[in-house]
């Protein structure tokens, strides 16, 4: 398909999905959403957006695949090593100063690289067994992958160098074994993690946390949706709990920005100060 995808076509598509599957992509950021749709159209060789719409209408099993393709699942372990250092040296110790338990939510966990990073860090800090970690994503297939704790070997060079810059205690090899071109991480690492399917857009608030990581997830939403999601994240935090977003994301445009203070501006860590 060579021609430009029209906004009217995207609207028709999101409306069908909302009606039939109760997922709402209406407020996804336009240019990345359009690129994802274009990718699906090319991948499955649809001739028009209408034929994609027809397929979604007639084949519910295709919808799962569609969701997997819509979500951006590019991630890395210890992305922004300096962020992880701030967690290790400042945020986690601060939480554990006042609490026995550490409740963490990875909102939009994708293939789990960030979750493994978290468990490695907490294990090295000796506090993993005091932690409860919930990892959620909208995409069931990617959660299944995350549960397996496997990472493609070709990504391990980058992951290893991030870990090194984070100044982990060992080398990353300690935590995985090579199997069929994959790095298979020690299943014992995720003993405190439970994975579940959850959609930030439609999902309800289901628990309270001391720390939420929602990094480079809301960039795929427009400002209206970012605003709505921030309400949910806020409600999901204990007072004085922490929220981490991506290094080039910002909360300042959101209605309830004043219910947070900036703890680390460089690494975009916020603290909830008001209910």
């Amino acid at each position: 398909m060579q021609q430009e995808i029209e906004i009217a076509e995207l609207r028709k598509l999101t409306e069908l999905i909302k009606e039939k599957y109760d997922y709402d992509f209406k407020n996804y950021a336009m240019s990345s959403f359009k690129r994802r749709i274009k990718r699906i159209v090319e991948l499955y060789k649809f001739k028009t957006i209408d034929s994609l719409i027809e397929k979604l209408e007639s084949t519910p099993s295709f919808f799962e695949e569609f969701v997997s393709e819509i979500t951006v699942n590019v991630t890395e372990m210890f992305r922004d090593p300096s962020f992880w250092s701030v967690l290790k040296e400042q945020i986690i110790p601060n939480i554990l100063l006042n609490h026995n338990k550490l409740n963490v939510w990875h909102a939009g966990c994708s293939s789990g690289e960030e979750v493994i990073s978290m468990t490695i860090m907490l294990e090295e800090m000796g506090v993993l067994d005091r932690s409860n970690i919930i990892a959620t994503d909208i995409d069931t297939a990617i959660i299944d992958r995350a549960k397996k704790g496997t990472v493609s070997l070709k990504n391990m060079e980058l992951n290893a160098s991030n870990y090194e810059r984070f100044e982990g205690k060992y080398t990353i090899d300690k935590y995985f074994q090579e199997q069929n071109g994959k790095a298979v991480f020690d299943p014992n690492l995720i003993r405190q993690v439970s994975f579940r399917k959850h959609d930030l857009v439609k999902g309800v608030v289901f628990s309270k946390f001391d720390l939420i990581l929602c990094r480079n997830v809301m960039i795929y939403f427009n400002q209206t949706l970012q605003n709505d999601v921030l309400y949910k994240l806020h409600e999901s935090l204990f007072r004085y709990g922490y929220l981490a977003i991506g290094s080039k994301e910002s909360l300042i445009w959101c209605d309830i920005a004043n219910k947070f203070i900036v703890v680390n501006n460089e690494e975009k860590v916020y603290k909830k100060i008001k209910d």
Binding site: A29, S31, S32, V72, V74, I219, Y220, Q223, K248, E249
Partner: peptide
């Protein structure tokens, strides 16, 4: 009139 960032491949 806004910019957006993404971490696509």
């Amino acid at each position: 009139n806004t910019m957006s960032l993404s971490t696509e491949r």
